[in-house]
């Protein structure tokens, strides 16, 4: 009960922690980009005429959504070398984050695409545009706008999930803080501070999304 808080190791480790925040940002941003690509590609396959492809996407989404990220990242960590891909922990973590986020993105984007009226698609087709052009030029942006709030919270969640990448020693905030903790035994002080860092990071992410949304979706709707 005579414990006195001592933040000295935290202060000494501050430069390392701040650099590690950048690592977290890199993981988060790269993971989001990959998730977006997987999300859009998945929706295209999900609406394909080929039944097997549709079921492949459904299966992928359900497997990812119904298993923990920690198990997924372990699996991918061990599976990639077997598939001939020898990657460092950080790129491995990005792939895992992208795959995990992509599964959620597929469901969210699909909801957005369904929210676009059939008339929009028909108008595009009647103008002589191809299906892919209709999706890219007409459906995508209004659909993204419709789902942007849920996409934002999903991606903030993805940002927080980067902390689990510490389990395979990817370079990010949690793994660096674990190192400082095990050197100093000032566990509470370290994790308390790092928790505050995460709060700032997720807040920054939300501001970033709000900024992007204000820029990119600045067209009026009724």
């Amino acid at each position: 009960m005579n414990y006195t808080l001592d933040f000295t190791p935290v202060i000494e480790g501050m430069p390392n922690l701040l650099t590690a925040c950048l690592g977290t940002f890199v993981l988060a941003i790269c993971g989001m980009l990959l998730a977006t690509v997987i999300g859009i590609g998945g929706v295209v396959l999900r609406t394909s005429k080929i039944k097997a492809l549709r079921w492949l996407v459904i299966g992928f989404v359900e497997i990812i959504r119904n298993t923990p990220f920690l198990v997924q990242i372990f699996f991918i960590y061990f599976a990639l070398p077997l598939a001939g891909l020898r990657l460092d922990p950080t790129p491995t973590a990005i792939i895992a984050l992208g795959i995990n986020g992509g599964a959620y993105a597929i469901e969210i984007i699909r909801g957005g695409v369904q929210s676009i009226s059939k008339g929009q698609v028909e108008a595009g087709l009647a103008l002589g545009l191809h299906k892919a052009q209709v999706f890219r030029l007409i459906v995508l942006k209004p659909a993204l706008r419709a789902i942007f709030p849920s996409l934002t919270s999903q991606f903030v969640l993805l940002t927080l999930t980067t902390s689990i990448a510490s389990a395979i020693s990817a370079y990010e905030l949690t793994s660096v803080s674990q190192r400082i903790e095990s050197d100093s035994f000032r566990s509470f002080e370290v994790y308390f501070t790092v928790t505050a860092f995460y709060l700032v990071i997720s807040w920054l992410m939300m501001r970033l999304f709000a900024f992007f949304s204000a820029r990119y979706f600045a067209y009026p709707v009724k």
Binding site: L160, T161, S163, F188, Y191, F192, V194, T195, Y198, S202
Partner: peptide, 10 residues
């Protein structure tokens, strides 16, 4: 706004 892992640690 913080990771569950950190919450468990704290």
């Amino acid at each position: 706004g913080t990771p569950l892992l950190m919450q468990l640690f704290v």
